[in-house]
Design a protein around this nucleic acid. Structure first.
Length: 256
DNA sequence: ATGGTCGCGGAGCGA
């Protein structure tokens, strides 16, 4: 099974890039974040022509997640089952065969100490409890998406400049570690140990052109999913060219 | 560099 996670920074202006990705890699599953489209306007027909069905959780202007797949998605879940957080469209999950997938757009957090930062930490704590309650790490479980969090300084182009700042602060990394403690592994690091591997680059500072980015888009896998995993690659080409998202897609390949 | 550029929606916010 080939599975992609991609923060598209709005789906509709990115649809031709999505089409290219589907044609080039023929993924079985695509987890999208920041679709920024209400469900009624989701481009279902265009994606169906490309051979993909979709389960969506949309919202006007902000956020929005969706899972595309070539086969029907089953046991679909939406949100975190918590009214404190479910006014924002950030979580959708489904089962594809024996693989459970949870697609996340984690709260950004703006800056350390802000209301949004505290909201982020509370959101991540709720995510931990939700995964613990609802998912079985003995199954093939893949939790992927835009985590808006780095694991360590290898994921940061200038660790000193980013020290104690979103998305590199210790409380954020601790919250991510808590989630990992449920039995999840950072699948990218199973195959790539080197520093300087990024999935996001700031538009404003022309970060991509300068090679200055962060690794914040992740595949967390349970042990059985990781044992089936054959590769995880960042698709840098999709960050280049005309009208890219500020995130690159990440592609994981699993044996059947 | 507390700037810069996107996307949305039609001003200012979020990232």
């Amino acid at each position: 099974m080939n599975i992609v996670t991609w923060n598209v920074n709005s789906l509709r202006p990115r649809l031709e890039r999505v089409r290219t990705l589907l044609e080039e890699h023929a993924p079985d599953v695509v987890c999208l974040q920041e679709t920024k489209v209400v469900d009624e306007l989701f481009p279902r027909d265009e994606l169906l022509e490309m051979g993909y069905t979709a389960e969506v959780l949309g919202q006007k202007t902000y956020n929005g997640v969706a899972i595309l797949a070539r086969e029907p998605l089953e046991d679909v879940v939406r949100g975190l089952d918590d009214e404190r957080f479910d006014d924002e469209a950030r979580v959708i999950g489904a089962r594809i065969g024996d693989v459970r997938v949870l697609d996340l757009y984690v709260v950004n957090g703006q800056r350390v100490g802000s209301v949004k930062y505290r909201h982020k930490l509370a959101w991540m704590e709720r995510l931990h409890d939700y995964v613990h309650e609802r998912f079985d790490p003995d199954e093939k479980l893949i939790v992927c998406g835009d985590f808006n969090c780095t694991f360590d300084d290898r994921d940061v182009h200038d660790p000193e400049a980013w020290r104690d700042s979103v998305p590199c602060s210790e409380p954020e990394r601790d919250a991510l570690a808590q989630l990992m403690s449920l039995g999840l592994r950072d699948a990218y690091r199973r195959f790539h140990e080197e520093a300087g591997q990024y999935t996001w680059w700031d538009f404003r500072t022309r970060g991509f052109e300068r090679g200055r980015g962060l690794r914040i888009d992740h595949f967390l896998m349970s042990l059985s999913a990781l044992e089936a995993c054959r590769s995880v690659e960042i698709l840098h080409d999709y960050r280049a060219g005309e009208k890219p998202s500020d995130h690159a897609p990440v592609l994981a390949t699993l044996a059947d």
